[in-house]
Every structure is written in structure tokens, then in C-alpha cells.
Computed example of a mutant assay.
Amino acid sequence: MYDIFCAIVLGIIEGLTEFLPVSSTGHMVLAGYLLGFEGEVATTFKIVIQLGAVIAVLLLYWNRYMAILKDMIAFKFSAKNKLNAIHMIVAMIPALLVYLLFKDLIKHYLFGPSTVLIGLVAGGILMIVAARIRRAVTAENSDDISYKQAFGIGLFQCLALWPGFSRSGSTISGGLLLGTSQKAAADFTFLISVPVMLGATVLDLYDSRDLLTSDTLLLFLVGFVSAFVVAMFAVVTFLNLIKRLKLEWFAIYRFVVAAVFFIIML
């Protein structure tokens, strides 16, 4: 019963933090540390339930995804003034390749509170640097993003494989450094989040299939539903917030969380 309680709490945390550049995985790792919810099952749980929040993005961007799919079926891949499937594919490839090559090392060594604190601080520094030395904007909205920028954002997304860095924080920072507006980077970040998280979840469930029992499946389902329900209420407000609020404010929050948990761990 306590595990179910933990699943609900972590699902709520995931739903609230997935759309902000503060690292939802990092928050779940830290919360799991406080709750004593750790181990192989907990690590897989923290990866899988992110899909619950990401499906909220799928619903929000449903028409956009359908338009991209329609253009892909019709082989319409013009890079000029039209974001298409190729943008998404080149942005997804780097992180998926790195995850495939190092997923065991990532799960074994990086899913701990100490490494999360490092990620929170390092990610916060990256966000401040990106906000301060951002390049002149060449992509005002996501349809203006070039293939080169999409691939560059995908490279920055690899940093998010370190819990605490944050996928949205890393990719938005990358977008700013590559010449996109914060709004364009945020839109693109959430557009590619669905296929990336879907791929990561399927791979992780396959690798962890020996851990899947009726009890663990119930945990995953409870966490998934909790994350989805909370995310449905939070998604629009938080997406608007991330497009407008300066990255420095999120960086300060990350530093505060890292400092508090550093004191707790001492």
C-alpha cells in the first residue's frame, strides 16, 4: 500500500514538473530518496511514468502532429517555413543513440540523489549562459527552425539523459544558443518529447521485462494515471509560463532545490 502512495506522489510530481525546465526525473529521484522508494523497479517506474505527462502534450499538439504525419505520408519535406518529420527525426536520433549505447550505465550510476544535484546545478548554469549569450534570433517560431538547428537541439537533448539536467532546460538552452527564440525552442522541445519518451519507455520496459509483475504493473499504472491527470490540468499554464519567463528564474529555483537537498543529505 505504501508503494501505491509513493506512485501517486511521484505521479503528481511528474505531472507538475515535466513541462518546466527543472528536471521532472531529478525531482522524482529526490522525492524517491525521501520516500525510500528506490531500486531497479523504482528507476524503471521513474522513466515509464513520464509518458503519462507527455501524452498530455500529444493531446495539446494533436492537430500539429496530424499535419506533420499527413505531410510525411505525402512526402512533403520542405525545410522552408514548415516544420516536418525530418526536423523531428534528426532531433531525436542523438539522444536515442546515446541512450541505446549507455542506458545500463545511466540507470546504474546516474539515478541517485548526488548525481541529480550535480545535474540541477550544471543545468542551471547552462540555462543562465544560454540566456545571457543567446544568438540573434533566426527562428522566431518552430516552423522557422532549420534542419541544422533541429539536429543541434537534439545534441543538447543528450544532456537530459543525466537526471537533473532537464530535457526542456537543455533543449531550450540549446535553441537559444543556436538562434531560436525561447518560444520556438519550447514548442519544438515539446513536439519531440512524445516520440522520444515513447521510444525510451518502450526500450526500458523491454529491458526491464523480468521486473514486470502484477504488483509492479499496478504501480506503473497508478503513476502513469496520476501524472497524466495532473499534467492535463497543468500543461497549458506551464507551457505558457516557460515561453515567457526568463530561464534565469528557473535556474535560481534549481540552485535552491540543490542546496536544500545537499543540506538534507548531509
Rank of each mutant, 00 (worst) to 15 (best):
V121R: 08
Y147H: 12
Q149Y: 09
S146L: 03
N141T: 13
Q157P: 01
L83T: 12
A139F: 04
I73D: 06
K70Y: 10
L69H: 11
A139K: 03
I133G: 09
V116D: 09
G152K: 07
I128A: 05
S146T: 15
Y147V: 07
I68K: 11
A85G: 07
L96M: 14
L100Q: 11
V90E: 03
H87Q: 03
K76F: 00
L69Y: 14
T138F: 09
Q149P: 06
N141K: 11
A139W: 04
V129H: 13
P94F: 04
I89C: 09
G124S: 11
G112S: 14
A91L: 00
K107L: 14
I118R: 00
S114L: 13
A122D: 08
S78I: 01
S142H: 12
P94R: 04
Q157K: 00
K76Y: 04
K76T: 04
Q149V: 06
A131F: 02
N81A: 08
S114N: 14
A79L: 11
H87S: 03
A139L: 00
A67H: 11
S78D: 15
P113R: 03
F102V: 05
P94L: 02
A95K: 00
K76G: 02
Y147M: 05
E140V: 13
P94K: 02
L97S: 10
I68T: 13
K70E: 14
L83I: 13
A91V: 00
K82M: 13
L96D: 06
A130Y: 10
Q157C: 00
T115N: 15
L155K: 00
S78M: 01
G152R: 05
A131H: 11
I128D: 10
K76N: 14
V129R: 08
Y99Q: 04
F77N: 05
M92N: 07
R135N: 13
M127N: 11
K70M: 05
S114T: 15
Q149M: 09
V129D: 10
L126C: 07
A91C: 03
L155I: 12
I118D: 01
D143S: 09
